[in-house]
């Protein structure tokens, strides 16, 4: 019997860029970091929330009466949502024929999620793929995963975790026997910067990374390059030096993706436009920087 439910905001099939083969990526809702540039601003809050894409509105007005708290109004030929009044009940979602509303975050029992994850099993087997746990921060839903992962593993699925690493290790450790590989992010080494840009210290992250290395757990460290924020040589020298001290010889430099900026007007979020450039000129210098520490980037 399922003890808890998972809150999941997306399940993406034919995911082929994170990890090997054809994968299904499960996005768990809720995160303990608050990165200003988060690609999935809708992933942060642990509870379900309303998403409204005004561009899809065809002005049929079906939604206006559907909202019990009167958060939806109709102005210049389009509906509009006042997120301050919205209590995320989701009644408007069903009313809209054009899919302008969506309630992000659906509850899944273990068996429901298992069904979704096994739909592409024949493709995992034929391509060496599997399931990727992503988010948000999947590990925050550790209690659910403790019941779920054994079933997924039992079905013969390769499991990969994408994590920010910011939680007490006791949440992660019971999951490790089922996970084959971990992708962990390293955004800053400097605690003050980490605090400033993500709203949280990075002590737990460094601790957890250390423990995983000590266990010799198969992992890949990824550094997301956010132009002008963590792409300076100074900060990367610190990261590189730390990784080197852990004996890590390879990092993956991730390119910045600004697509999230179009999402923030559609949800209730404090995340603001950053207008960060997509310029990737810094990559070359960073690669050199890592190679000084015998790290392939």
């Amino acid at each position: 019997m399922s003890r808890t439910l998972a809150n999941i905001f997306d399940i993406q099939r034919f995911s082929i860029h994170d990890g090997q083969g054809i994968r299904t990526t499960v996005f768990f809702k809720g995160c303990s970091l608050n990165c200003q540039w988060c690609q999935n601003p809708e992933s942060k809050a642990p509870k379900s929330q309303l998403y409204f894409d005004q561009a899809k509105c065809q002005d049929c007005k079906s939604c206006i009466g559907s909202c019990p708290s009167g958060a939806i109004s109709n102005g210049a030929g389009k509906s509009d949502v006042d997120f301050n009044m919205c209590n995320d009940c989701g009644q408007c979602v069903e009313s809209c024929p054009n899919l302008a509303f969506e309630l992000l975050g659906k509850s899944y029992t273990e068996d429901e999620l298992l069904d979704s994850c096994l739909k592409d099993q024949s493709f995992y087997e034929s391509s060496g793929g599997g399931v990727t746990l992503s988010g948000g921060e999947a590990v925050l839903q550790s209690e659910f995963l403790q019941g779920f992962l054994p079933k997924l593993k039992e079905a013969g699925v390769h499991i990969l975790l994408e994590t920010a690493g910011n939680y007490p290790f006791r949440l992660l450790s019971p999951l490790l026997p089922y996970i084959s590989h971990i992708y962990i992010d390293m955004k800053f080494y400097s605690e003050d910067k980490h605090l400033k840009y993500t709203g949280s210290s990075n002590q737990l992250i460094l601790e957890n990374l250390g423990k995983l290395v000590e266990m010799d757990f198969p992992l890949t460290v990824r550094v997301p390059g956010i132009n002008g924020i963590n792409t300076d040589i100074d900060e990367n020298e610190k990261i590189a030096s730390h990784l080197n001290s852990l004996g890590i010889s390879e990092v993956e430099l991730l390119k910045y993706n600004s697509l999230w900026e179009s999402k923030i007007s559609r949800i209730d979020t404090a995340q603001k436009q950053l207008n960060i450039s997509n310029n990737e000129d810094y990559l070359h210098e960073l690669k050199k920087c890592y190679s000084k520490y015998d790290i392939r980037a």
Binding site: I16, G21, I22, D120, S122, F123, E125, S126
Partner: peptide, 21 residues
């Protein structure tokens, strides 16, 4: 999506996955 050797893995995956199904 299917460039390089990695792309071959994806194509073979789609092909064999579909046929096995």
């Amino acid at each position: 999506n299917i460039s390089g050797e990695r792309g071959n893995v994806i194509l073979e995956g789609l092909l064999r996955g579909h046929f096995n199904g």
